[in-house]
């Protein structure tokens, strides 16, 4: 049966948006997250990421910094101005560890600033705890 009217109960899977210009990183993250039963959407630069974020309203965004077209920090700042995305949890995943970048990201309200390379298992734990906090807050 097709769900023309969107009546069917929406999936209660947690949705994660990965924004990174390196396809191999996106792929490895996506594989692992999907294995752990997350719903994954992806984008390869900030501009596309912003569109996806508004359209898909993910729970968590994993956001790279250095990307073509629009970088991660610009996207983050734009994201916080979108009413629909105000409460999205953001984790920065970047190869840049510049103090100014971290401060700029922190000013926009982020969950964590993780410098590559990172441990995927630790990242998963981090995401789980963010999701739990979100659930607790929603109640």
């Amino acid at each position: 049966m097709f769900d023309f009217l969107g009546l069917k109960k929406k999936t209660d899977k947690v949705k994660i948006l990965i924004v990174d210009d390196e396809p191999n990183i996106v792929q490895t993250l996506q594989d692992r997250l999907e294995m752990n039963d997350f719903d994954v959407v992806t984008a390869c630069n900030g501009e596309e990421g912003l569109k996806q974020a508004i359209q898909e309203t993910p729970d968590v965004v994993l956001l790279d910094v250095i990307m073509p077209v629009m970088d991660g920090l610009e996207m983050l700042e734009a994201l916080r101005k979108e009413p629909a995305c105000e409460n999205v949890s953001v984790v920065m995943l970047t190869a840049r560890s510049q103090t100014q970048d971290i401060a700029r990201a922190n000013a926009c309200g982020i969950e964590d600033y993780i410098v590559k390379p990172f441990d995927l298992s630790e990242l998963l734990e981090k995401i789980e705890s963010i999701v739990e906090n979100r659930k607790a807050l929603a109640k």
Binding site: E22, N24, I25, T28, L29, D31, R32, M35, A95, K116, P117, F118, D119, L120, S121
Partner: peptide, 11 residues
């Protein structure tokens, strides 16, 4: 690249 290797191995 090291992130990609690490992620792949971890997966």
């Amino acid at each position: 690249p090291v992130t990609i290797i690490q992620n792949s191995v971890s997966n």
